[in-house]
Amino acid sequence: MNVTIVDYNSGNISSVINSFTEVAKGKVNLEVTSDLNKIKSSDKVVLPGQGSFKSCIDALNSINGLTDILSEFVMIDKKPLFGICVGLQMFADVGYEETETKGLGWLPGKVSKIDNKNGKYKLPHIGWNQINIVKDSKIFKDVENNSHMYFVHSYEFIPEDKDVISAITDYSSNIVCSVEKENIFGTQFHPEKSDKVGLKIINNFINL
């Protein structure tokens, strides 16, 4: 099996590469690339994302044909894709970080700034928070409810269809921290930085 991490200059992806390398050892073939043909022929794709919604979308768009290939992979070929942090946020129709920016539109919804309740909550939301699993998700196999995951973000994904939400976390309000819809998976938290339980989620995705 081939798992591809999309390398599109979205900032720092070395931790994503390290964690997937650790889990994939001897199990699957891991590629880190922006090569369209390799992505297209891959069995699974990981879409990381750091920085702002706009900077990640701009970086995707700067590689000719990449968004089309990814959309085809997800929406037509229906192959599994895992978005992490801004990688998940980009599933939305639109994001409002820096300026209004069109997203990939795979899951209807928007990405807006977390309400900090007039400074009561510090932003970014940085650190370990517990996830409340609200529906069965394949990537949460053997993951206990209320497990701690590592977060670092100031914006949240608000999907129109609440059925896609697989876990929420409590920070100022109930923040969507994980989604699953058919072959589309995403976490707002960083499984690659969430120690053993995070590696378990990565393992679950690889074993899908």
Partner: peptide
């Protein structure tokens, strides 16, 4: 922070 994101 613009280039890599404030988070880092």
């Amino acid at each position: 922070s613009k280039k890599f994101g404030s988070q880092c």
